Amino acid sequence: MANTKRDLFLKRRLRVRNALRKTSNGRLRLSVHRSSKNISAQLIDDAKGVTVASASSLEKDLGVVGKNNVEAAAKIGATIAERAKKAGVETCYFDRGGFLFHGKIKALAEAAREGGLKF
């Protein structure tokens, strides 16, 4: 039985998230979602169940509305790092979900690291 792309994505997402939960030690989670048209990132406190900060290419003031490329991902990464600093967050762990750490996801992570987030 062949696995569909969706099944493989869901298996990869669970594998990544479960491995991260074991080593999280109460840190916040930087969760990334990429669609065909947009990219977004959220800083989530799983203990309280709240989103501390978020950034998305859907926000008009960022100037990347409807774009899903490496430049937009880097802008989102820098923005989430800036908003995390305002919220008083310096360390988190990077939850890439089922997405491969390459291309847009990698650009977002590098920009967040350059912005001061440690993961």
Score class of each variant (00 low, 15 high):
His102Gly: 06
Thr79Ala: 03
Leu100Arg: 10
Val70Ile: 15
Ser57Ile: 05
Leu10Tyr: 10
Val50Ser: 10
Ala2Leu: 10
Asp45Ser: 07
Ala78Glu: 04
Arg21Pro: 05
Ala112Lys: 11
Glu90Ala: 12
Lys118Trp: 02
Lys22Asp: 14
Leu43Met: 06
Ser35Cys: 12
Ile80Ser: 01
Lys86Ser: 07
Leu58Tyr: 03
Ile76Gln: 00
Ala72Leu: 07
Gly77His: 02
Glu71Gln: 12
Ser35Asn: 08
Lys48Asp: 14
Ala47Gly: 14
Gln42Phe: 01
Thr23Leu: 13
Ala74His: 00
Glu90Thr: 15
Gly88Trp: 01
Lys85Arg: 04
Lys37Pro: 06
Ile76Thr: 01
Ala107Val: 08
Val89His: 06
Ser57Asp: 03
Val52Gln: 05
Asn25Met: 14
Lys22Ala: 15
Glu114Leu: 08
Gly98Met: 11
Asn18Arg: 05
Arg29Ser: 04
Asp61Cys: 09
Leu62Thr: 03
Asn69Phe: 08
Lys106Ile: 02
Gln42Pro: 01
Thr4His: 03
Val70Ser: 11
Leu58His: 08
Ile105Leu: 11
Arg34His: 13
Val89Pro: 09
Phe119Asp: 06
Asp7Val: 10
Leu58Cys: 00
Leu100Trp: 10
Ser35Gln: 12
Gly88Ser: 00
Thr79Asp: 02
Arg12Val: 08
Arg13Leu: 14
Phe119Cys: 14
Ala81Leu: 02
His102Phe: 12
Gly63Tyr: 08
Glu90Cys: 03
Glu110Asp: 15
Val70His: 05
Thr51Glu: 00
Ala74Ile: 00
Leu117Val: 10
Lys118Leu: 10
Gly97Ile: 14
